[in-house]
């Protein structure tokens, strides 16, 4: 008989995923990779939300996840468009080469 996984494990997993995302955003130079790390952060949050939702027996957390996914999709559309505009202008997607103004 399979025992149910305790809530803590989900929380630890999502915290680890979130931290991996944060480290990716801080250390990577490629805008696309930074972008992927951002998505990882949001998905870590989704995991937290779903775990709490199941634990509390409350559906609101799962509804929140739908909104987070919709917003992530909107952010992806705008973000990729901005990266594309940057590439057209400068032929690069490396953020450390985007330094016209002091960072």
């Amino acid at each position: 008989m399979l025992q149910s996984i305790p809530l803590d494990w989900y929380l630890i997993l999502s915290a680890v995923l979130f931290v991996i995302g944060v480290i990716g955003v801080i250390t990577r130079r490629n805008a696309i990779i930074i972008f992927m790390s951002l998505e990882l952060m949001l998905n870590a949050v989704n995991l937290t939300m779903v775990a709490f939702s199941a634990f509390l027996g409350d559906v609101a957390g799962q509804i929140f996840v739908f909104f987070v996914m919709a917003v992530a999709a909107a952010e992806a559309a705008v973000g990729l468009a901005i990266v594309l505009a940057l590439f057209r202008k400068k032929q690069t997607v490396y953020v450390d080469e985007v330094n016209l103004m002091k960072w």
């Binding site: 929380l11 979130f18 995302g21 944060v22 955003v25 805008a31 930074i34 972008f35 951002l38 952060m41 949001l42 870590a44 949050v45 937290t48 939300m49 775990a51 709490f52 634990f55 509390l56 609101a60 957390g61 929140f64 987070v68 917003v71 952010e75 705008v78 973000g79 901005i82 990266v83 505009a85 940057l86 202008k89 953020v95 985007v98 016209l100 103004m101 960072w103």
Partner: peptide, 27 residues
């Protein structure tokens, strides 16, 4: 374009923290 990229990357980064905080408050 540079302003847009910087704003987007850092803004989305901050949104990640905001929504994670919301998830923990919910829990």
């Amino acid at each position: 374009v540079e302003a847009a990229l910087k704003y987007f990357l850092l803004g989305a980064f901050a949104s990640g923290f905001l929504v994670y905080g919301m998830a923990l408050l919910y829990g």
